[in-house]
Simulated assay, not measured.
Amino acid sequence: MLGWVVTFLVIALIAGILGFGGIAGASVEIAKIIFFVAVILFLVSAVVGLARGRRI
């Protein structure tokens, strides 16, 4: 999922350099959304893992 974030950031950088401001802005927003979704999923899985604990 973080690979998608990097992809959209690269697209935003290239679009920004070439002068496509709308595409660059949209790509940055998409990258932000995907990043925060990835962080939330990581935190949820960490909390669930800690709640379950290790059972021997």
Rank of each mutant, 00 (worst) to 15 (best):
A31Q: 03
V6Q: 08
T7R: 15
G3N: 07
I34V: 09
F36A: 13
F42Y: 14
G16S: 08
K32D: 13
V48A: 10
M1S: 06
A38M: 08
V47Q: 01
G25H: 00
I14K: 09
G21Q: 13
V28C: 05
G22T: 12
V37Y: 05
V48Y: 05
A24S: 11
L2D: 07
I23N: 01
L13M: 06
L9P: 02
V28N: 07
S45E: 07
V37R: 05
F42W: 13
L2N: 11
I33N: 11
V28D: 03
V44N: 04
G49A: 11
F36C: 09
A46F: 09
L13W: 09
F36V: 13
V28S: 07
A51T: 04
V47S: 04
I33C: 09
R54G: 06
E29R: 14
L50I: 12
G21N: 14
A38F: 14
V47G: 01
F35T: 13
K32V: 12
R52C: 05
A31C: 04
V5H: 02
I56E: 14
G53I: 01
A31F: 01
A15F: 05
I11M: 09
L2C: 01
R54I: 14
L2E: 12
G25Y: 01
V5G: 03
I17S: 09
M1A: 10
I30Q: 07
V6E: 14
V39A: 15
I14S: 09
I40F: 13
W4G: 14
A46Y: 08
T7E: 15
G49W: 02
I30L: 12
F20I: 09
A51R: 12
I34H: 03
F35D: 15
F35E: 13
G22A: 11
